[in-house]
């Protein structure tokens, strides 16, 4: 009898190994699908209003404009122009995001007319004093994380995949992110960020998704809450325009200098 069990064991394991997905494989497959479904948008422009709130409910508003250019085979190129506060009006930020290596980033300082290259290794740094870190707003590439599917569950009435994303870059401010993806459209609906001590730091919720060009889903509002400080930052997107005719020439140090 014992002998028979031993003989059967390998047979019992074989199908598991060759046909069933591991949670890691399933997670990666979902992440790739998320990316694939948004491929081919070409370029888009949008306006953003960012509202920072502290624990006492005091608010501060920043208005910025965003131009994004899709680079096939690499991360996006992004140009951001600051309109409000008026004190920093004219400041502009250019980023070439990459799949694996660090992003290239330049800042234009209008008072000196200076274009300053900045280090993108500080990806955990705050973007404009908000609860968003640079790595939260940088283009999300498949290669930036390793994945693990955790479970399927309903989130706010929608069937969702729940994935754990572990950043591959040691400079990341997070040990892991837990992300809820809509099962139908493969878009993120909620992210929990865990800090370097693996304590829940922030939660991001995406609201008001709309579809553009019959393909690309974009949110109207992104709400980030910092659980440790009680501060929050809302990003309201408006005026999305796709395939506006931007080219790579609109994403250079020279175009950064004349960005308005």
């Amino acid at each position: 009898m014992k002998r028979l069990v031993l003989l059967l064991l390998p047979l019992w394991f074989v199908p598991t190994i060759s046909f069933a997905e591991t949670p890691e494989e399933k997670g990666l497959k979902i992440a790739k699908e998320v990316n694939l479904r948004d491929d081919g948008y070409g370029d888009f422009t949008a306006s953003l209003k960012m509202t920072l709130r502290n624990r006492q409910g005091e608010e501060s508003i920043r208005v910025i404009r965003n131009r994004t250019f899709e680079v096939p085979g690499d991360g996006d190129k992004v140009l951001i122009i600051f309109d409000t506060p008026k004190v920093v009006k004219g400041t502009a930020f250019l980023s070439f995001t990459h799949k694996i290596k660090n992003d290239d980033q330049w800042l234009f300082l209008p008072a000196l007319k200076r274009v300053k290259r900045i280090s993108s290794s500080n990806k955990s740094g705050s973007f404009m004093g908000s609860e968003y870190a640079y790595e939260d707003i940088s283009s999300q590439e498949v290669e930036k994380y390793s994945y693990r599917w955790l479970r399927d569950e309903d989130y706010e009435g929608k069937a969702a995949f729940v994935l754990e994303l572990d950043p591959t870059d040691p400079n990341s401010g997070y040990t892991r992110q837990i992300v809820w993806f809509d099962q139908k459209e493969y878009i993120p609906i909620k992210v929990d960020y865990y800090d370097r001590k693996n304590v829940l730091l922030k939660t991001l919720n995406f609201h008001g998704y709309k579809q553009y060009l019959g393909k690309h889903w974009r949110p109207d509002r992104m709400a980030m809450v910092n659980h440790q400080t009680g501060k929050s930052s809302d990003l309201e997107w408006s005026g999305y325009k796709f395939k506006t005719g931007l080219s790579e020439k609109d994403f250079t140090k020279n175009s950064l200098k004349r960005a308005r």
């Binding site: 660090n102 290259r117 900045i118 280090s119 290794s121 500080n122 400079n171």
Partner: peptide
């Protein structure tokens, strides 16, 4: 000349 090596400029 400017070079970036990790967090160093």
């Amino acid at each position: 000349l400017q070079s970036i090596i990790d967090v160093w400029l």
